[in-house]
Simulated scan of single mutants.
Amino acid sequence: MSNKALHCPTCKKTVTADNPDFPFCSDRCRIIDLGKWASGDYKITSPIHDPDLLEDLVREQNRSSET
Rank of each mutant, 00 (worst) to 15 (best):
S2F: 10
S2M: 10
N3V: 03
N3R: 05
N3C: 04
K4W: 03
A5Y: 07
A5N: 09
L6T: 04
L6Q: 00
H7K: 06
H7I: 00
P9Q: 01
P9M: 00
T10K: 02
T10D: 05
C11K: 00
C11R: 00
C11M: 02
K12W: 02
K12C: 02
K13H: 11
K13T: 14
T16E: 15
A17N: 08
A17W: 03
D18E: 13
D18N: 15
N19E: 13
P20G: 04
D21R: 05
D21V: 02
F22E: 06
F22R: 03
F24G: 08
F24V: 11
C25P: 01
C25H: 01
I31C: 06
I31Q: 14
I31W: 08
I31K: 14
I32V: 15
D33I: 01
K36N: 10
W37S: 10
A38I: 06
A38S: 10
G40A: 02
G40F: 02
G40K: 01
D41N: 05
I44D: 14
I44T: 12
T45M: 06
S46Q: 09
S46V: 08
S46T: 12
P47L: 09
D50Q: 09
D50E: 13
D50R: 09
P51N: 07
P51L: 07
D52V: 13
D52M: 09
D52S: 12
D52A: 14
D52T: 13
D52W: 08
L53N: 09
E55I: 04
E55H: 05
D56C: 07
R59F: 06
R59C: 04
R59L: 11
E60C: 09
E60I: 08
Q61A: 15
Q61L: 15
Q61P: 01
N62Y: 06
N62S: 07
S65K: 14
E66M: 07
E66V: 05
T67V: 14
T67W: 12
